[in-house]
Amino acid sequence: MSTRSGSSSASSLRRLALPMAALLLLLLFNFLFTPGFFAVEVRDGRLYGTLIDILNHGSKIGIVAIGMTLVIATGGVDLSVGAVAAIAGAAAAHLIVSGSSPPVAIASGLILGVLAGAWNGILVTMLRLQPIVATLILMVAGRGIAQLITNGLIITYDSPTLTFIGNGSLGGLPFPVMMLAVVLAITAILARRTAIGLFVECVGDNAAAARMSGVPDRAVKLLAYASCGLCAGLAGLIECSYIRAADANNAGMLLELDAILAVVLGGTALTGGRFSLIGSVLGAMLIQILTKTLYMQNVSADIAPAPKALVVLVVCLLHSPALRQRLANLVSRRAGA
């Protein structure tokens, strides 16, 4: 992002306008109607409060959304992130329980995530399956694999290191928030300080032209899917750490939807091309605020998906060129009459 200058950052600002506006609107709503929403207090050198909660829980979605952003920017999509998160969490917990050291367990979870992502990438680039179809396979089978690892049980473990990932704090902020910041920073540096970002955007914007310019489109896609798998693995570790257990059946449930939604909210088009990592993180936080607001308005966690779905629909419609075309036609017809 920093290598951009002038009007380019202006245009990325324009893309961020919608999520920013929605964010401010939700915050304003909560300021008016949710007492204590903005209260933050310090206990034992750690911040507590609703906003901190949102940051904490939004981090998991945000991390996956960063990986998903890269995949969507290449013109693809990854439906398997929830299942991959479940696999990573199950593997880590299983290794801890069977006596491995926490670093080994954590590394194994992450490596499994990368492998799962690379598998998706191979199906997309080598077999040329459509991304939805290719990632559907792991979406179906992944949860089964996770349950295979946990033997169908909920594995509870006792490991301060692993527990710290989801529950610890650093510099007053919950550890997941710090991890989100690190993932965002690393991805942003890799994307913008090397040619990865440029290549990803080229492949997503015009694959044929990118190929004619010599862009290694398959390698770029493979990298994007592998990164997405890594992010999903990390999210799986956070979730498994947060509840101090691996629940293969429910871990990462509907994570794919939240992540895709965050990316779309953040201004990255589902058709690929230009992407915004910051936007996706904002989108993730927006989703979390929306969820929290619904809870605080006494909407049950089960019903909450419905209003979220309406938000998705509205955002998609606002992003749809077809709708804009129709509106433009309407205006011009009226002007003509």
Partner: peptide
């Protein structure tokens, strides 16, 4: 098969050299 439409003039010019 030529332009990357939504990318900037700058990025379009630098693409092949970057490759």
């Amino acid at each position: 098969e030529g332009i990357i439409p939504n990318l900037s003039v700058r990025e379009n010019i630098l693409l092949a050299l970057q490759v």
